Amino acid sequence: MDVPELLEAASLLVPERIATENDLTVGDVWEYLAHDEWEVALGLLEELGDVHALPPGFWEGLATAAEELRLERSTAWCHWRAYEARHGIIRARLTLRPAAEATRRTPVAGAGVLRPMWDIGDRSADGGPVLHIARLWVEYAPELEPGGQAPVRLAPLDAARWRRLRPGQEITMHEVRSVAGTAVILEAGPPPATSAG
């Protein structure tokens, strides 16, 4: 499929009744598609996906379209959202330790590249922490500086182990054995119910 076909197919999965914060709907997507405004249509479909739970196929179609348009961050975001549609969402407010107190001296890349370890409360037989791996996406920013704070999304390697997390729970991020940051869970839930998969 070419880009317009991918975007048209994705738009068919969006209920007509939903609208973005600015009252844009799937009808507006069709207007942009009719005028070959593919990047605008893609961005609007991403926004509509934030308003209503949509199936992984929606996000995969958008990822393919974004890749064809050579929009790297948008491609990565749509793949990320397809993961969340399958495995659930985990959002947290992450505070990184300052560079003077941690091994990290450079910013954390924001688009799901870093795969740090996390202490989510599991313990080994000897009482030590069991660390789990989850990719990290910094929301609303391309990176997070040492000492900085931002809302983040986590994509665990084994999502089932993270199901017991609850809002308000504190977890710690590790890039080595020492703590690199602390996160407070904002949202944690199973995959959303969607009308198609």
Rank of each mutant, 00 (worst) to 15 (best):
M1K: 09
E5D: 13
L6F: 13
L6R: 13
L6A: 04
L7W: 10
E8D: 08
A9G: 06
A10F: 11
A10S: 09
L12E: 15
V14Q: 06
E16F: 07
R17D: 15
I18M: 03
T20R: 05
V26P: 00
D28G: 01
D28R: 03
V29D: 04
E31H: 10
Y32G: 00
L33A: 04
A34V: 01
H35P: 00
H35G: 01
D36P: 01
D36S: 14
D36R: 12
E37C: 09
E37M: 09
W38S: 05
E39Y: 03
E39G: 09
E39P: 01
V40Q: 06
L44R: 08
E46G: 05
E47V: 01
L48Y: 07
D50M: 09
A53R: 05
A53W: 02
A53I: 01
P56Y: 05
F58N: 06
F58G: 04
W59M: 05
E60V: 08
E60N: 13
A63M: 13
A65M: 12
A65Y: 10
A66R: 01
A66I: 08
A66S: 10
E68L: 15
E68Y: 12
L69R: 08
R70S: 14
L71A: 12
L71Y: 01
E72G: 00
E72F: 03
S74N: 04
W77N: 02
W77Q: 03
W77M: 08
H79P: 00
R81I: 04
R81N: 13
A82T: 09
A82R: 06
E84V: 05
A85Q: 11
I89G: 03
I89R: 14
A92L: 09
L94E: 10
T95G: 12
L96I: 09
R97K: 15
R97M: 14
A100C: 03
A102D: 15
A102K: 02
T103P: 00
R104A: 08
T106N: 06
A109M: 08
G110P: 05
A111S: 11
A111W: 00
V113K: 09
R115Q: 10
M117R: 13
M117G: 12
I120G: 09
I120L: 09
D122W: 12
R123M: 07
S124Y: 01
D126H: 05
P129K: 05
P129Y: 02
P129C: 02
H132C: 04
I133M: 09
W137C: 00
W137E: 01
W137K: 08
A141W: 02
A141K: 14
P142V: 13
P142C: 04
P142H: 13
E143F: 10
L144C: 11
E145P: 00
E145Y: 06
P146G: 09
G147N: 08
G147E: 10
G148L: 07
G148Q: 06
A150M: 03
P151F: 00
L154M: 15
A155F: 02
A155D: 12
D158S: 12
A160L: 11
R163H: 12
R163G: 08
R163Y: 07
R166H: 11
P167H: 14
G168V: 14
E170W: 06
E170H: 14
I171P: 13
T172W: 06
H174R: 10
H174Y: 13
V176T: 12
R177P: 01
R177F: 02
A180G: 15
G181L: 07
A183W: 05
A183R: 10
V184I: 15
E187W: 14
P190M: 06
P192L: 08
A193D: 09
